[in-house]
Design a protein around this nucleic acid. Structure first.
Lengths: 228, 228
DNA sequence: GATAAATTTCACAAAATTGTCGCAGAGTCA
DNA sequence: TGACTCTGCGACAATTTTGTGAAATTTATC
């Protein structure tokens, strides 16, 4: 899951440095050098985070933050603001308009990455998943294990995700496309038939106590996970 | 098991109120009114939690938190910081130095207790300083030693912390990021893959009686410590 | 401030997983 | 039954992920 980060900064040197560091660490960086460019580039896939220079010409940094935080679509995107060393009270104003963290220039890439990671962690609360069990087949998201009558089963990551999805959505047919969306995630291009292969691998993995019958083919439509 | 809570607060009235509430609820309260007293009283039995006033004279609250969070023995003690209403950005600074929660004055005893319970629940469901043993592999936090069937094992500090974390949180997958958060601490940024290296060194260190199988790779996800 | 120890990063090897084929066999319908 | 479509299966090359040794960097210690 690659995350998109929007960088709003008027100084080209800093902007490029930021962009470089982001991409080095596997984030997708999008640059904007002023208020208007920022508004343009924010659409399509919304960014997962915004690095915002506070000192944009004309004080538009504050305005931008306010605008984003008052818009339903962008309200929840965390903002890290970048301030010069002396502007101590910027912090306060930043927090007022809803920035989630701040970073004082100059800062090291390490510092920056630490902050980004911290913010992501803060905004992404960890869900607590209960184990699911059907007919002796048990999937525990926490330990990331599947057992059949307490006997450990082995399978690949995709099979695990597939089974997880099935067990949380039983008694319902899903087309191959729908499964691709839910298990593989949108915006990946793979053939429909790939699903078949993973279905087979999943069945194989849980076949020991004939749990493979739980994964049912609905001819011409897709697959269903069902106890009956 | 009565838990010890250290209260660091310069205002006598508040300090005594806190102490009273703690004891009402079965906790053992220890009071300190400044930086130095806090350091004195923290020894002997380490407290299980610290309530720290952020506004200690001379800004020593922040210093104290930093010091505690950078010391091996006190790093894992949860800190709840107490801030005045207006000091909004104290939250941020607090989270930076590793405080686990904060509470804005004035607060009700109810609120306080709820927060304390929540933090205890969050940080460690397992016992604090008891030795832990799994299949002959024994880790003693007090003497800071690891043995396999009474045979002493050698490992670096990071490996020890990693093993300690694993043994107190078994049967659970952790992503490399989560391990970084829990074992390394929140305010450092290192590459994910660094975890791999320390996992290897840990496995090496405990491999003598094939305890290395306890540290399991969950492909595409992270690592798990498990007896089975 | 020099030296040693520990930590992190890097580069490459090893291992596991993935997506795609072609083909066989099963199901469907006239 | 025969023609057709759809699904299951084994194989395999490409890709991704992890393991490992060693160099580079940071941190601790005297």
């Amino acid at each position: 899951m690659s995350r998109k980060i929007l960088i709003v900064e008027d100084e080209a040197a800093i902007r490029e440095m930021l962009s470089f560091v982001m991409e080095q660490h596997g984030y997708q960086a999008v640059e904007a050098n002023d208020y208007h460019q920022a508004l343009e580039k924010i659409t399509d896939p919304l960014p997962d985070m915004i690095l915002l220079d506070w000192m944009l010409p004309g004080g538009t940094g504050v305005q931008l933050a306010k605008k984003l935080k008052s818009d339903d679509f962008t309200r929840n995107i965390p903002i890290i603001m970048l301030t010069a060393r002396s502007e101590e009270d910027d912090k306060i104003r930043g927090l007022e308009v809803g920035a989630d963290d701040y970073l004082t220039k100059p800062f090291s890439p390490k510092e920056l990455m630490a902050r980004i990671r911290a913010v992501f962690r803060r905004v992404t609360p960890t869900a607590l998943d209960e184990p699911i069990e059907i007919e002796g087949l048990r999937l525990d998201p926490v330990s990331h294990r599947v057992t059949a009558f307490d006997e450990r089963l082995d399978m690949g990551p995709t099979e695990f995700k597939l089974l997880h999805f099935f067990m949380t959505h039983p008694e319902r047919v899903y087309s191959r496309e729908q499964l691709l969306d839910h298990v593989w995630g949108t915006n990946v291009y793979v053939e429909d038939r790939t699903v078949d292969v993973h279905i087979r691998r999943l069945r194989q993995a849980i076949a020991a106590h004939s749990h493979d019958r739980l994964v049912q083919t609905v001819r011409g439509v897709g697959y269903r996970f069902s106890a009956r």
